Amino acid sequence: MYSQRPTQPGSMLQQGSTAFPTPPASTAGSPQELEQAPLISVSTYFHPTANIIPYVDPDVVLASSDSVYFYVHRQKLLHRSSNNFANLLPSSSTSQTDLQPYVHNRSAPPPPLSSPPLRGSEHPNSPHQHHTSPSSRQPNPRPATPQTLLVVPERSDVLNILLLAIYNVSAERYAPSLDTLSLVPQAMIRYGYNPPELINPNTEITRLILHHVRADALRVYVLAGLYNLESLAVSASRHVRSVATITDEQALMMGSIYLRRIMQLHVNRIAALKSILFVKPDGHRPGQPPCDGTDQRVQRAWALATAYLAWEARPDMPSVEIAKSLAPLLDHNRISAVLNAWAHVKDTI
């Protein structure tokens, strides 16, 4: 998520009393001097030479509460924000000039800038990297782009996922926890974004959250209800095993509408399962003449088995458990009919 780079003495970006150290130029100082320079933490994705938007240099630097720097683009931050990124960025009518990409050569794009090398102890998928001397990097052919430094209250892990959601880039390699993901929608609201617009079936952050649905479906459902994330709530509702474990706090967070919907889903599924089970079988097997005694024994055994299943009925009762209880009583075709009917009962809100 962030890397640590040596800074160049005297290379600072000023905003009021806030001083921001920038990575050194490729010709600045000897390797020994750079090794002794202080390190700053810079995002491994949103770094100065990332070229996220081709030929458009980042013009905003975000500093997280734990002092990790993210190089981003004003146009991206303002695109869907209803409050100018928490009123930190002006809605500039003059930004059209700022947003024009710098073209080093109109017949060919500027030469690529090599990524800073990693020390051997760091893995490429690590959330942070420690960079060695950048003396091997090519000189940057672009003119310096004016950059605005904004200090924000989010931790770097939350800010990283927020920015990746704004850019709609996969964050799977960072493997964010559900704790981190749960803080992102509130950060979206703070900066003027509508969570349902950024968290929907077509976005990468939704897939990240769904990675946690099997392990903690109820918590994902509560998160979806809290921010009215309908598609996420529908997906999570399939995996919520019980409404009996919902706490008062969770009920308040998801709200009355989503609470009623998940409870109604479970009530409906249990009722549907009982309805399927209470349809009595014919008693005799196909190809054999009916026998009253056999019919009565099968009916009694069926009544006992279905009474047990009905008593133990759960909205997520697996088909294998139903089949195991009915196997001594019915042939394969009839068991399959019961299981097929159960499989077609609606399992989402």
Rank of each mutant, 00 (worst) to 15 (best):
Q288N: 14
H239D: 12
M1K: 10
H47D: 01
G225W: 09
A337M: 04
A343K: 12
V279P: 10
V220Y: 02
Y167C: 08
R214Y: 10
R261N: 09
D295C: 15
H344D: 07
L163Y: 03
A215F: 06
L178H: 11
A187N: 08
R297Q: 11
R5F: 07
P146T: 06
Q36A: 12
P195K: 08
S256Q: 14
N125Y: 09
T306H: 09
S126D: 13
G192T: 00
Q250T: 02
P146W: 05
A28D: 13
I205T: 01
P111A: 12
P127Y: 01
S275K: 11
H284W: 14
P31A: 08
D179K: 07
Q264D: 15
N51R: 09
P286E: 08
D216W: 04
N160E: 11
S67E: 14
Y102W: 14
H130A: 00
L88N: 14
R285Y: 15
A144W: 03
Q138W: 01
R334W: 04
I199Y: 07
V240Y: 11
S67G: 08
Q15E: 13
S67Q: 13
R285G: 02
L330I: 02
V222P: 06
T148E: 10
Q96P: 14
P6Y: 00
N160L: 00
P195Q: 07
S17A: 13
W342H: 07
D66Y: 02
V222F: 14
T148C: 01
S135N: 10
A171S: 10
H79G: 01
E197C: 06
Y221C: 03
T44C: 04
H131W: 13
S92P: 12
A144T: 08
S93W: 15
Y2P: 07
K76Y: 03
R74H: 10
L34K: 03
Q75A: 06
Y191L: 12
L232F: 04
H123C: 02
V220L: 06
P124V: 04
Q8H: 04
L178F: 13
R142P: 03
S26D: 11
D295W: 11
H73L: 00
Y193T: 09
Q296G: 15
F85Y: 05
V267Q: 12
V152S: 00
S41G: 08
N160H: 08
W342Y: 06
P21I: 05
L329W: 02
P290Q: 14
